[in-house]
Design a protein around this nucleic acid. Structure first.
Lengths: 153, 153
DNA sequence: ATTGAAAGTGGTCCGGT
DNA sequence: ACCGGACCACTTTCAAT
C-alpha cells in the first residue's frame, strides 16, 4: 500500500459515493488509474465494502446502549454460540468480543427505554450461558474513520 | 418515512456505491424517483453520509481496544473537554459517552500492543480529569447496519 | 409524487507508453 | 504502472400526468 492507495482510501472514506473522476482529480492521477487502484484495493480485501451512515433517531431507534456480558463457561463453544446468536438479533448493531472482566459488549439501538429493558430481561436472560449482564445507556456515539497512511510497498 | 424510503435505505446500506439505477430497479420505481427520494433522505438528515469499510489490519492497525474511562469531576465542562480531546487523537476510531460506572468508552485501533500501552500510559494519563482507566483488548468487532423499517408517514 | 425522455456526465475498457 | 481517448451506461433535469 503506497501513498496513492492511501490517498484513494482517505478520499472514499469521507464519502463512499464520490465519483471515480473526483477521486482521481483529488489524488492527481487519471480516472483509469484511480479505477484500477480502487479495484485492486477491493480485490485485496483492504476495502471490505461501503455503507450508509443513517441517523438512528430518524429511523425510529433513538435509544442506544452498551451491554456488557459475561458468559459461563468461557469456552470457545459458549463464546461462539452466544456471539452468533446475539449478532443476529434485530436490536444489535455492533458486537465487541473482549478481554477483561466481561466477554462481550453488545451495542444495541432500540425505540425506547422499555424496549431496552425488554431486550435485557426477556431476550438476553433466555440464554443459559449468560452469567452476568451490565447495561450502560449510550448518551452519544461518535465514529471516526481510521487515519490511513501508506504502509510502504 | 414510508416503505419506499426504507427500501432505498436498506439497498444503499448494504452497498453505498450501488448505482441509482440499480437501487431503482431493486425497489421497483423509476431512476428519477429513486434519485429524488434519496436526495430528500439526505436533505432531511436521515442519510448522514457514506463511508468505506476498511480492513484495519490491512492498513497497519490490527490491534483494537476499548478503554473505559472515568473522569472527575463528571461535570459538563470536564466531559465535553475530554470528549473533544480524545476524539481528535489519531488512535481513536470511536467514542461512546455512557451512563454507569464509567463515563467514556474509547475505541482505539493501533499498530501493536506496545502502541496500545503507550496510548494508555502516555497519552490518556496526560489529562488531569482522567480518574480511572480500564483497558479491554478487542478480539473481534462485528458491525451490523440497523434493520430499517417504515415509520409510516 | 412519479414518470419517460433528453442532455450531460462519468464509468470502463483498451491500446500505447 | 500510468495514461488518453472512445464507447457506452448512468445521472440528472424537466415537462407532463
Amino acid at each position: 500500500m503506497d501513498e496513492l492507495d492511501a490517498a484513494i482510501l482517505r478520499s472514499l472514506q469521507s464519502d463512499a459515493r464520490r465519483s471515480n473522476r473526483d477521486v482521481a482529480a483529488e489524488v492527481g492521477v487519471a480516472p483509469s488509474t484511480a479505477l484500477e487502484r480502487t479495484r485492486l484495493l477491493r480485490d485485496r480485501g483492504v476495502i471490505r465494502g461501503s455503507t450508509l451512515e443513517v441517523d438512528l433517531a430518524a429511523v425510529g431507534r433513538p435509544v442506544q446502549a452498551l451491554i456488557a456480558i459475561r458468559v459461563r463457561p468461557p469456552s470457545r463453544r459458549a463464546i461462539e454460540a452466544f456471539r452468533d446468536w446475539v449478532q443476529a438479533l434485530p436490536e444489535t448493531i455492533g458486537l465487541f468480543v473482549v478481554s477483561g472482566a466481561e466477554d462481550f459488549l453488545v451495542h444495541v439501538a432500540v425505540a425506547d427505554n422499555e424496549a431496552l429493558y425488554a431486550f435485557v430481561i426477556d431476550r438476553l436472560t433466555q440464554r443459559p450461558e449468560v452469567a452476568d449482564v451490565r447495561t450502560s445507556v449510550v448518551y452519544e456515539h461518535l465514529r471516526r474513520p481510521p487515519r490511513i497512511e501508506a504502509t510502504d510497498r
